[in-house]
Structures are given as C-alpha cells and as structure tokens.
Amino acid sequence: MHLFVTGTPIGNLDDMTFRAIETLKDVDTILCEDTRTTRKLTNHFEISTPLRSYHDFNKEEVEDHIIEEMKEGRTFALVSDAGMPVVSDPGFELIGRMQRENLDYVVIPSASAFTMALVASGIPSYEFTYFGFLPKTGRKRKDKLIEVMEHPFTSVLYESPHKIKDTIAAISNIDPERNVSVSREITKKFEQHERASAVEMADMLGERIPLKGEFVIVVEGAPEIEETFDMPVTEHIEVLVGEGMKPKQAIKAVADLRGLRKQDVYDEYHKK
C-alpha cells in the first residue's frame, strides 16, 4: 500500500484508534497540513515518523515528488490538522493522481465534526447535504446562503467564531422560524450542542453560547409549500434586500421558500 489516508481526533486525543497509531508508526513519512499541529499528536503517542508539509499552498509543488517516491516503494500517511483528511482539506487531488497512476491507497476512519454535529442536532438526517465553509465575503457568500435556505434537505455548514453571529442572523432574516442546531468544541471539555429556531439562536450566541471554538451549523431543510410565514410577502422581500440581496434575487428566494409563483411575488412587491 502506498498511501494511508488516516483520520485523527477532532479534539479529544483519546479518540485516536489503535489502527491509526500503528499506521503512523509504520509508514515512512506523514504528510500533514501543519507540522507543528501534527507534532503534538505524534509526540503524545510516541510516534517518531518524519513529517512533511502537504497543504493548499504547496500541494502542486510537492505532488510529483510524492508520486515518484511512492513508485520507488516509500509509504505515506496523509493526515489533516484534525479529523478526516480531504473533508474541507487538501488531498483529493493527490488521491485522484494516484488513481490515474494505478497506485494503491486505503482510508483509515475517524470522527468528523460535521457527522457528529448532525447526529447531535436532532434534525432529520436521512437526506442531507454537506456545504462545508461558506465563501468568505461578498455576493458568493450571499448566493450560497440562499442556496442553503432553499435546499429541501438538511444542510450542514462549518463556520468560524468570528462570523457565526452574522451567519445565524442572515439565516434568521430569511426564515426566523427555521430549526437550526449549533455545535462547538466537539469532543472537548466544553462541548456544546444547542437547537432552536433561527431567531432564538441569534439571541443565544454570545450569551448562552460562547463565541469560542469552531462551529458546525445544521439547518433544517426548506419548508414544504403549505408552510406559512408570519411576515407579509413584501416585508419578507425587504428583509432580504436589507441583508444585501438585489430585489430580483430576494423575490426569487421568497417565491421558492413560500412555494409561490415568482411572477405573483414580483407583482405583489411592485404594487406596494
């Protein structure tokens, strides 16, 4: 086997598996995002295997060397800073290259923050979509959030402590009654999972929920057509426009969320 895609704990080192420890000890090199972070893990488990940086900023530069070394018989483990490699982290390009080169690899599982948050949310999980991190700023971020809110199935997002309040506020402005779960510090001492309507969740952040640690947001799927909204159509549109949407986008979003014809919503808005 040339590569072991190896999951590591997302917070609590006791979650490290025996198989993962033995793998990291046996391979020739460990590929990791940040050698300082992975060194804490390897020191804890007395793993002396050499570390090599493999991250978004150097992956194209080092990929050829890694492939050549694999062909010469060297073995590698790919880890991320925490959890499963490749999930919102670099690595899929290397695996794709290995597939094209007919090189063998295996995946060694571990916890993943988004699956644990989904389980803890109490929100339906038979069908869900993992969206990862939203775009950082601007129109792309707003458009992606609209996509999430229009999505018929449960959505899972990652968010930073610096943007969590703004993201939940934006969700609340689109649909204040939508069920939302927020998880933080998963597997750590201050692990927390809270579920509430979006408008209630917005009030909890910074009060009941400290703005510390990485967050996972689980959003209930868009309501069915028969669900009603407390605010009038025109007010709903104005809220979205106030969030930065263009009126045309807001009209489409409101029509989709409420199960109405776009033209009817347009006419209602423009006769106000």
Results as ranks from 00 to 15, higher is better:
residue 2 H to Q: 06
residue 3 L to H: 09
residue 14 D to P: 01
residue 15 D to A: 04
residue 16 M to F: 04
residue 17 T to Y: 10
residue 18 F to S: 13
residue 22 E to Q: 08
residue 27 V to L: 06
residue 28 D to Y: 15
residue 29 T to E: 10
residue 30 I to F: 09
residue 31 L to Y: 09
residue 32 C to I: 12
residue 33 E to P: 04
residue 33 E to Q: 07
residue 34 D to L: 11
residue 35 T to Y: 03
residue 35 T to G: 07
residue 35 T to N: 07
residue 36 R to W: 06
residue 37 T to I: 11
residue 39 R to V: 12
residue 39 R to Q: 07
residue 40 K to P: 05
residue 44 H to C: 11
residue 45 F to R: 01
residue 49 T to C: 00
residue 50 P to Q: 04
residue 52 R to E: 01
residue 54 Y to I: 01
residue 55 H to L: 03
residue 55 H to W: 01
residue 56 D to W: 02
residue 57 F to Y: 02
residue 58 N to G: 05
residue 60 E to M: 06
residue 60 E to D: 09
residue 65 H to P: 10
residue 66 I to Q: 00
residue 66 I to S: 00
residue 67 I to S: 00
residue 68 E to L: 09
residue 68 E to D: 09
residue 68 E to S: 10
residue 70 M to E: 04
residue 74 R to V: 02
residue 74 R to L: 05
residue 75 T to I: 04
residue 75 T to V: 00
residue 77 A to M: 04
residue 78 L to F: 04
residue 78 L to P: 01
residue 79 V to N: 03
residue 80 S to N: 02
residue 81 D to T: 05
residue 84 M to G: 03
residue 88 S to M: 00
residue 89 D to K: 06
residue 89 D to V: 15
residue 96 G to D: 13
residue 100 R to S: 12
residue 103 L to F: 12
residue 104 D to M: 14
residue 108 I to Y: 07
residue 108 I to K: 06
residue 110 S to P: 00
residue 112 S to R: 08
residue 114 F to W: 04
residue 116 M to S: 09
residue 118 L to A: 02
residue 121 S to H: 00
residue 122 G to N: 06
residue 126 Y to E: 13
residue 128 F to R: 04
residue 131 F to L: 01
residue 132 G to A: 05
residue 132 G to S: 03
residue 133 F to G: 05
residue 134 L to E: 03
residue 136 K to N: 10
residue 137 T to H: 10
residue 138 G to F: 07
residue 138 G to H: 04
residue 140 K to Y: 15
residue 142 K to N: 05
residue 143 D to G: 01
residue 148 V to Y: 03
residue 152 P to Y: 04
residue 154 T to A: 08
residue 154 T to H: 11
residue 159 E to R: 03
residue 159 E to S: 12
residue 162 H to I: 15
residue 162 H to C: 13
residue 165 K to H: 11
residue 166 D to H: 08
residue 166 D to K: 14
residue 167 T to R: 00
residue 168 I to S: 10
residue 172 S to R: 12
residue 175 D to Y: 07
residue 175 D to C: 15
residue 183 S to E: 06
residue 188 K to F: 12
residue 191 E to R: 15
residue 196 A to S: 14
residue 199 V to N: 15
residue 201 M to K: 12
residue 203 D to I: 10
residue 204 M to V: 15
residue 206 G to E: 08
residue 206 G to P: 10
residue 207 E to Q: 15
residue 208 R to T: 13
residue 209 I to L: 07
residue 210 P to N: 03
residue 210 P to E: 03
residue 210 P to M: 06
residue 213 G to V: 14
residue 220 E to N: 12
residue 221 G to Y: 05
residue 222 A to Q: 02
residue 222 A to L: 12
residue 223 P to T: 09
residue 227 E to C: 02
residue 229 F to G: 11
residue 230 D to K: 07
residue 231 M to Y: 10
residue 231 M to Q: 15
residue 233 V to H: 09
residue 233 V to Q: 06
residue 236 H to E: 06
residue 238 E to G: 13
residue 239 V to S: 10
residue 239 V to I: 09
residue 243 E to S: 15
residue 247 P to H: 08
residue 250 A to Q: 12
residue 257 L to K: 14
residue 259 G to S: 08
residue 259 G to Q: 08
residue 261 R to T: 06
residue 261 R to D: 14
residue 262 K to L: 04
residue 264 D to R: 07
residue 267 D to Y: 11
residue 270 H to G: 00
residue 271 K to R: 14
residue 271 K to F: 14
